[in-house]
Design a protein around this nucleic acid. Structure first.
Lengths: 130, 130
DNA sequence: TATTGTTATACTCTATAACTATA
DNA sequence: TATAGTTATAGAGTATAACAATA
């Protein structure tokens, strides 16, 4: 049953990423950086559940495409904050819009199931924090 | 909300895969091959939503570890069927057992929410076939 | 001393293109 | 002609180890 929460979603994520000429980790990185809320690179590493060294390369490639930029932390000079550029913000909005439509298996459910599912998942996300 | 269906599950999948010294695509491949039901390599490519050429390498590495083997299709000599070895079957059982425990966000839900979620997801999986 | 991020390295995943064998 | 799988290649993701800068 739990495979639904990851394996079954992979084709959809691969397709959406490819539509924007991005990889899934790049999409996750862009989604993680909210407008006017730069994120430290260490936060991205936690979000991706990968080693911090990988974030350097992912950031390099997104920065080269002009989607985000490295900024300084106001007080800690070790930390690099990632902020979306205007192009990055626009792409992020398109990504979110694209991801708004539920996958076909969800759309095939009854309206009651769909709303119940949404409510339960929202409650689950609250439990787990950002 | 939908990010829950993939992004939020990634750390868990990365961790489980690493526990068994496997990669997520390798885990997905092993999970896809049911006992006594060999799967053609083309089916794995669809399941992973990747090009068929990638399955060659993934299969090579799993075969080298003795977890699965290539067999011939009874009638179509182009097709290679992937079957788990006894070691692969045992590993698959451990993986399924390991994945049986829901993630902490789910366990934090009320029992009613948990059963409702399980029922809805099972219905969703029925809609989408194998 | 500990933490953040980078660099170098080796392995894996990924798509594309060209290929062989078979249908 | 079309399909299943392989090989070669280049780019991206991944962990590990060593490192510099900063806390």
């Amino acid at each position: 049953m739990q495979e639904f929460l990851f394996s079954r979603q992979r084709p959809r994520w691969m397709a959406i990423s490819a539509e924007f000429d991005l990889t899934p980790p790049q999409v996750m990185t862009i989604n993680r950086i909210e407008p006017d809320r730069p994120a430290p690179m260490s936060d991205i590493a936690k979000w991706l559940a990968c080693d911090a060294s990988n974030v350097t390369g992912i950031t390099d490639r997104l920065e080269k495409r002009g989607l985000l930029e490295r900024r300084n932390h106001p007080s800690d000079r070790r930390v690099r904050m990632l902020a979306l550029t205007p192009e990055g913000l626009e792409l992020r909005a398109e990504l979110q819009e694209r991801g708004r439509t539920p996958p076909p298996e969800i759309l095939a459910l009854s309206p009651e199931d769909q709303t119940a599912l949404r409510d339960i998942l929202l409650r689950a996300m609250e439990k787990s924090g950002r």
